[in-house]
Design a protein around this nucleic acid. Structure first.
Length: 711
DNA sequence: CCGCCTCGAGTTCT
DNA sequence: CTCGAGGCGG
């Protein structure tokens, strides 16, 4: 009796808890699903990750206690499946097609012309434009509002059943929204007319399609982990996403944090346009891409494309173009299929960020310092919207690293989206006629012998390996020419309207021999040259004479002494005050300056020892160049001890101007972010310094705050 | 001697 | 902007 009683009460207790648990479980599921929807679909975070995790934890624990309460659509079941032996096949109810490609306006026009002929004047009703996500296509099937199965494209007719893996993607709803919610959404978009048919469809089956992808952050995170573990890094997010979705063990897929957008409804619910499909998908609780939009004509399409080509880097996922679809579904159907692609849609690709081309030659350039730089002359190709015909190869080490030969086929990209850069040599495409590149033994410009790493190693055996080859002839025309380019450049004498072309002309005609000669130029000297008439000659002379008075730091910088750039020139001007003091400074004096070590001191000292340079300085004086020697006074100490780094561009002042203003107030400017940096001033379109500042926790300020500090 | 912090120099096309 | 290397502190 006693025992019976006990058992009874125990059962009673369990039952009670179970019913409570059931209620609690349902509430938790609803809540978790709601936050998931806000976060992954509507892009809104209203609860911290930690808080959401604790909800999930509670749910998980309850379900552990009552396994019989687990349902397949519970949020805990996103990683519920066991590893598979192989994927089952799923037949697509309607073939999954691919798109034909267009690369420019002409292609688009041709496409429009082609199908308008087919339509023979029927109304086409504009286009729907979507971002073309670089991922893989999927198909999802929902029965009675719950996710039932999903598959990859496969060959278009039959795909692989990757249901378990798709479940792990939080952007893929395990349940559609509740009907009352859907109705509200439809009303908001004035789509009530679909209500009836949609409700009926949902009680049965609805099939939709979309794209699975991995965002950049996740991709970078995984590659960091790979690197740390000494494993091979993945080539791109697309391949990694595709690989992840084809994992037999859903635990692996789950760890990859994939994302997804959907973009079309296969089931007929009376949708008239593609735009409506998107709105309905959104109303159902699917994640659709909010940037997609309707455009009336090809001009609008063109604008959409161009805008996103420019802004594609701001997205957290990769796109390789846009998809343009005839918006009217009846017209779209009528246009039919050509080959493997629908005639009513086209992928309008962005110009590629990398392209394949041939190395026609490798030539050598001589820079201001005499350093020889090998440059590849390329068969011109369009990369990122501009034509590239040359790319630097930096030095011999780089050539060896790439293994590049003349005649090779290469992949060219643009470093920092600007500077052409050889990424890869396609050695498999060689035909045997490729020629090895050799550094010339003699300077290609003056014919004097080149000093290479081997020679220098003998001269200074303590130094490590040096990569540069150098023409050490002080009279090498190339070096002298570059010296004058440098002299007139923005940060030196800043002489407007005199560029390499004019300097070449003047030197070739032997009218000038060094920078000092510029200041004694007469109008008559120029009139004999090609492309110079009265007016242009006058302007040029005027531009030169206008810059006759120059601050000491600019002057020192303009001399182009090895290892003396802007900063060191500024420092020298501040310390020595007068040109004469610097000229006569001893090695020890120079060496004692902060940031000047043995190498820099030696470079400065020996520059002023040379007769040629002494003459040059005298000639500047004779030509009437005046050095303003009293500019170093700091106006205030307001920013003393503060170090600034500047990135991006500003509305009200240039970067250099900003720099001078900081210095005037006693602050320091640095070119790279570190622990020592006090403020990073962030303009529009900032570069990597901004990222670094954020990572290091350095304080960033915007233009407004910066200007306030300057006041 | 090592590692961090800077500066210098080179770079393409519109 | 990026890479290489000089300077300097630990």
């Amino acid at each position: 009796m006693v025992n019976f009683h006990k058992e009874c009460s125990l059962r009673q207790e369990t039952l009670m808890i179970k019913s409570d648990a059931q209620k609690r479980i349902e509430k938790l599921r609803k809540l978790i699903n709601h936050y998931r929807y806000l976060y992954h679909v509507l892009d809104r975070q209203e609860i911290s990750d930690a808080a959401l995790d604790s909800l999930k934890n509670e749910l998980f624990n309850l379900e552990q206690q009552f396994p019989e309460l687990v349902t397949p659509d519970s949020p805990t079941q996103r990683v519920g499946g066991k590893p598979l032996k192989e994927f089952k096949k799923i037949k697509h109810p309607e073939q999954m097609l691919s798109f034909n490609d267009a690369f420019d306006v002409a292609d688009m026009k041709a496409w429009e012309d082609r199908f308008e002929k087919v339509l023979s004047g029927a109304k086409k009703d504009g286009y729907y434009c979507e971002l073309k996500i670089d991922g893989l296509a999927i198909e999802l099937s929902y029965k009675k509002g719950a996710f039932e199965s999903g598959s990859t494209r496969g060959d278009g007719r039959i795909g692989e059943d990757v249901t378990q893996n798709l479940k792990t993607i939080e952007a893929v709803p395990l349940n559609l929204l509740e009907w009352t919610e859907i109705e509200k959404n439809l009303k908001k978009d004035k789509l009530e007319r679909f209500s009836k048919k949609l409700e009926k469809t949902l009680s049965g089956q609805i099939i939709v399609r979309g794209e699975v992808f991995m965002d950049r952050k996740e991709f970078e995170k995984i590659n960091r982990q790979q690197k740390k573990a000494g494993l091979k890094e993945y080539a791109n997010p697309r391949n990694l996403a595709a690989g992840s979705i084809r994992q037999l063990d859903p635990k692996v897929t789950s760890a990859r944090n994939l994302d997804s957008f959907v973009y079309s409804i296969i089931t007929d619910i009376g949708q008239e346009t593609h735009e409506e499909e998107h709105k309905i998908l959104k109303a159902l609780g699917f994640k659709v891409n909010s940037h997609n939009t309707y455009e009336r004509n090809l001009e609008g399409v063109e604008q959409f494309r161009n805008r996103w080509e420019k802004e594609r880097d701001k997205l957290n996922y990769e796109i390789d173009g846009i998809v343009v679809i005839v918006n009217n579904n009846h017209v779209f159907k009528r246009l039919g299929i050509v080959g493997k692609a629908p005639r009513g849609a086209i992928a309008y690709k962005f110009s590629p960020k990398e392209a394949e081309t041939a190395v026609e030659d490798i030539v050598v350039q001589v820079g201001r310092t005499g350093v020889l730089t090998p440059v590849a002359n390329l068969n011109p190709v369009n990369i990122g919207g501009t034509t590239v015909s040359r790319a630097t190869l930096h030095n011999l080490d780089e050539i060896r690293r790439l293994g590049i030969k003349i005649g090779d086929t290469v992949i060219v990209g643009r470093a920092g989206d600007v500077i052409p850069d050889v990424r890869n040599v396609l050695k498999d495409l060689r035909n045997g006629k490729e020629k090895e590149f050799h550094m010339p033994k003699k300077c290609p410009v003056c014919g004097e012998p080149i000093e290479g790493p081997a020679q220098r190693a003998r001269l200074a055996p303590t130094k490590g390996r040096q990569v540069a080859f150098k023409c050490v002839n002080k009279n090498c025309p190339a070096v002298k020419r570059e010296a004058i380019y440098h002299f007139v450049s923005k940060k030196a004498f800043d002489i407007d309207g005199i560029g390499p072309k004019i300097i070449d002309q003047l030197m070739d005609a032997a009218i000038i021999h060094d920078a000092a000669d510029l200041f004694t130029l007469k109008k008559e000297d120029l009139l004999n040259l090609e492309r110079f008439a009265e007016k242009s000659a006058y302007n040029t002379i005027n531009a030169i004479q206008k810059k006759k008075n120059v601050h000491l730091d600019k002057f020192i910088y303009a001399l182009g002494i090895d290892h003396v750039g802007e900063e060191t020139a500024f420092l020298l001007a501040k310390k020595f005050k007068k040109m004469d003091n610097l000229k006569n400074a001893s090695l020890e004096e120079l060496r004692s300056l902060p940031d000047v070590g043995p190498i820099v001191a030696e470079s400065i000292y020996s520059w002023f020892q040379k007769k040629y340079n002494q003459n040059l300085i005298n000639n500047f004086g004779k030509a009437g160049v005046k050095i303003l020697e009293e500019k170093t006074s700091v106006k205030s100490e307001k920013l003393a001890g503060k170090t600034f780094v500047i990135t991006g561009s500003f509305e009200t002042l240039g970067r250099d101007e900003a720099k001078y203003r900081v210095r005037d107030l006693g602050g320091d400017i640095s070119s790279s972010v570190s622990q020592n940096t006090d403020y990073v001033v962030v303009g529009s379109e900032p570069g990597s310094k901004y990222d670094k500042a954020k990572k290091m926790g350095v304080k960033t300020i915007d233009e407004k705050e910066f200007l306030k500090m300057l006041k």
